[in-house]
Design a binder for these strands. Structure first.
Lengths: 210, 210
DNA sequence: CGGCATACGGAATCGCCGTTCCGTTTCGGC
DNA sequence: GCCGAAACGGAACGGCGATTCCGTATGCCG
């Protein structure tokens, strides 16, 4: 079968690698600032490239945005992982603050952030890291045992909603909400009887309007 | 000035009134289900009318969506007002649950909900009603005195974010978040030092990407 | 240096959607 | 029932943006 290696990923030419990077940087900047509705032409211009070049690296606009989102999630997850090694019990809170800050800077990505058509590697990894951070917080008595990983994800989605709404008009709003909510997570007994979102549910978030 | 009454709103013909209502109903249904990106043609079809008729009642699509959003906000505010008269202290919590339920049903409107180009009458009224509900809750000792109207709005935006993300996959997620958060609002001393969002900031929410 | 696969640019294509226009139909007062 | 104003339907227009295509330029290997 000589065709076996026809889809093997051949190394890109040096200029192609450089340009791919330029596209991602340009798209990242524009999307963060103006949202996902920036046109491919704007991105190409920002990158100093032709439109055709964008399409040589990414089959379509969706793929480009997906790449941006994936990179963003990876960055946040990495931040969380590095907080994990300290094992101080405050890792979860620090992570949430860090994530909030990142969300604020990537406002344009937000509508796409938790709407992947299916779970990506970074999303899966996020569940693991958050679970570990939560476990540490609970061991140190900073969070009630009844709190689940799903609750932390829901909190992230809440922060996203706040940041999306307040934009730069009230940049500190999300952090006050976080402070208040963290207090709720410490309450004993657990102030709710409703079950948390399950890991499975987290994994199956569907795109809107589908 | 014979032109003085040239812009007086003349009563609509009976069929025009009926059709205007049909448009709003159809648009409401489609937007709730599929989001604001439904085309005018789809709305016209759902309403059983021609496109031209839509444009006779609403100057453009934005105006139509604005009318939907305004109606939605009014409905929620009315619900809040009716909780106010009981003066039981639980009005605020009941209002938040009611609002969450309404948000869940109007998922498609959400991206536009708190992005009016400028404050509408309903939005202004919302501030008043929420303020009164909060005051009652505080008098009854169900919410700490340090909590402000802005905190309640931020909580609503948080719920919106959760509902937008979870959709019908985890319909109860927002309510658990609310339970946990309400516990935080009761904590003494106030678990944060950050200032709440001000009324003025609430009034000046700007459209995204502007 | 030569040859070619790979990459690039950007004009042209294509489809979609908001909006406009105008001939036809319907309402409502007389 | 008759008439003019108001309303209706839906084809046609215009713009925008994603995507494609192909002639040209460039890195890479021998």
């Amino acid at each position: 079968m000589g065709a076996a290696d026809s889809d093997a990923t051949r190394p890109l030419r040096r200029d192609a690698v450089r340009n791919r990077e330029r596209v991602l940087v340009a798209a990242g900047r524009l999307v963060a600032e103006h949202g996902v509705d920036v046109s491919m032409e704007q991105i190409a211009q920002e990158a100093g490239l032709g439109i055709g070049t964008l399409y040589r690296r990414f089959p379509n606009k969706d793929a480009l945005v997906d790449a941006l989102v994936e990179a963003f999630v990876e960055q946040v997850v990495d931040a969380g992982r590095s907080l994990l090694v300290r094992d101080e019990g405050t890792g979860l809170e620090d992570f949430l603050r860090e994530a909030g800050r990142s969300l604020s800077e990537q406002r344009g990505c937000l509508p796409r952030l938790w709407h992947p058509s299916r779970a990506t590697p970074a999303t899966r990894e996020a569940r693991v890291v958050v679970g570990a951070l939560l476990a540490q917080a609970q061991e140190h008595g900073r969070v009630e045992p009844g709190i689940a990983v799903g609750d932390v994800f829901v909190l992230l989605w809440a922060l996203r909603g706040i940041i999306e709404t307040t934009g730069e008009l009230a940049p500190g709003a999300w952090e006050r909400h976080l402070d208040l909510h963290l207090a709720g997570l410490r309450c004993r007994p657990l102030p709710t009887t409703r079950p948390p979102v399950s890991l499975d549910q987290i994994a199956h978030l569907a795109p809107p309007g589908a």
